[in-house]
Amino acid sequence: MITDDERHLADLLDSLRREAPDLAANFAQRFRSDLLGYHGLDDADIVEAVLRAVDGLIAMAREQRPATDDELAGLRGHGELRADQGVPLESVMRSWQIAIREVIRRIGELAESANVPVPVLRVFVDAMLAAMDEAMLEISTGYRAREFRLSRQLDIRRDEFVRALFGGGLTPEESRREMQAFGLTQPRYATFRAVPADRTAEHVDWELRQRPGCRPPYGLTAVLDGDVVGLCTLEQGSLELGTLVVGVGPAVELDEVASSFHIAGRVASTALDFELPGQHTLAELGLLTAVTADPALGKSLSARYCDPLTTDDEMEILRTVDCYLSNGMNAAETATHMFVHHNTVRHRLSRFEELTEVRLRDPHIASQVWWALRYRQLRTMGRSNDQVRSSAG
């Protein structure tokens, strides 16, 4: 049997339902004018969502029950729809707060004329607020789940685009269309390949995307074969990131991007082999890239200039020769750098020339010896140049 209190509450809710279309229309106008993301939605869309939400919350509050499985699915679906429409989650949550606050305010006004006792009204309003909390949680869950799927789809598309762009698998028209879709508007881009050291590729990808030069309109990053690759505009800032090894190709126009990326790969491979963290270009590493690219020549030169020296004293001679070449072939500076007397340096250089039957003052000979020493350095590091990273192309 229905009590007077229940009858009064039912009358109140009937009055509220009759007013709901007008309330929803007012909400639609307010949302479209005040909340980011709603201005592009149709009034009918917003009104329908408000009416459905109010009706559902009233049912849950009146029966003092949690949402059913179908109601939960509907709330999550609402969150997914708003994510698809590009409405920020903050705006979605704010719209619900506005609507429920106004509905509860109107319930209070109607309660006086409907003679609803205050204790009954309080119980109903508390149940309404609890239902709203549950609804907002489900909407947020649906929104974030959809947002994650959309983000993942975008990541996949981005990775596929970068892979095709760097592999030369796109026509100029296709490349321009995709770059426009990703918001890339610069006339020229440098390319890069970053080799993670003590972190995951996904972590590095996220960190680089925080750099202005690596996000649209100045750049784009992607994960490729365990490395982080992309387009960038170096004028917007460095790509230096802790111990990260980054090879950078020259800034080029669209039709030369694949060639630039090949260079970036060579630079990254060289820097990795020589244990040189940081951002590097082909010009900065110079002939080191050639040393890694031509192991046969390095092996031949090492056999000619390094292998004949085998004793500990002769190893010291090689170290002195290396320091001598690095100091502009200046014996005095070499002595200072090595903390030995300059006569010691001269004696070691003379001994090297005797053992190898060459003259270091000959520029051609000096360059060959430098090459041999760099190849030997790689072997000492345990990275044979016969196993240059395949990712460098």
Rank of each mutant, 00 (worst) to 15 (best):
A283R: 06
M329T: 07
C306Y: 04
E353R: 07
T185F: 05
T200H: 01
V345E: 09
F31R: 03
R152F: 14
E235P: 00
T292V: 09
E253G: 12
D84E: 15
T344S: 15
L325T: 04
A130P: 00
S390G: 11
Q236P: 00
A283I: 08
S367C: 06
G328N: 11
R52L: 12
A25F: 04
Q377Y: 03
D14F: 07
W370P: 00
T336R: 13
V252R: 06
C306F: 07
H78L: 15
H341I: 07
G382N: 04
T344A: 15
D4Q: 12
G77E: 14
A61S: 08
R374P: 00
F161V: 03
A392F: 02
H341V: 13
D70L: 14
R152Y: 12
D22L: 13
E134L: 15
L224H: 09
E275T: 03
G298M: 02
T270S: 06
L239H: 02
R101A: 13
P66T: 14
I2E: 12
F166V: 05
A61T: 04
T171S: 15
A331G: 03
R32W: 08
L288S: 01
V267Y: 01
R149L: 14
L234S: 09
L360D: 07
E109D: 13
R361F: 06
L378I: 01
A28M: 07
L288G: 00
L234W: 08
D313W: 09
I100Q: 11
Y375K: 04
D294L: 07
T243L: 12
A49R: 11
C306L: 10
R149Y: 10
L110W: 13
L239I: 02
G278W: 01
A283P: 00
D22P: 00
L51Q: 10
V267H: 02
A331R: 04
T289A: 09
A111V: 10
Q236L: 14
L318D: 10
V291Q: 01
D307M: 03
R82L: 15
E160Q: 10
Q180G: 07
T221K: 01
M93P: 00
L301E: 02
F161D: 00
A73I: 08
L51S: 02
A61V: 08
S151M: 13
D45M: 14
G382M: 08
Q387V: 06
S175H: 07
V321E: 04
R152P: 00
A197G: 05
H8V: 02
R144N: 11
F339W: 09
D362L: 12
V291A: 05
A130Y: 09
E134S: 13
A114E: 14
G249T: 00
S260N: 05
G278C: 03
E357Q: 15
A372R: 09
L13M: 10
L282H: 01
A181T: 06
E178W: 06
D84V: 06
P217S: 04
E284Q: 10
P295N: 05
A293W: 01
D294F: 02
V120S: 11
A296H: 07
A28N: 04
A251D: 07
S367F: 05
Q377M: 06
E48N: 04
L309F: 10
T336E: 14
E112N: 04
Q180T: 09
A28G: 06
D45W: 11
A194G: 02
Q210C: 01
S15H: 07
A392M: 08
V245W: 00
M136V: 15
S326D: 14
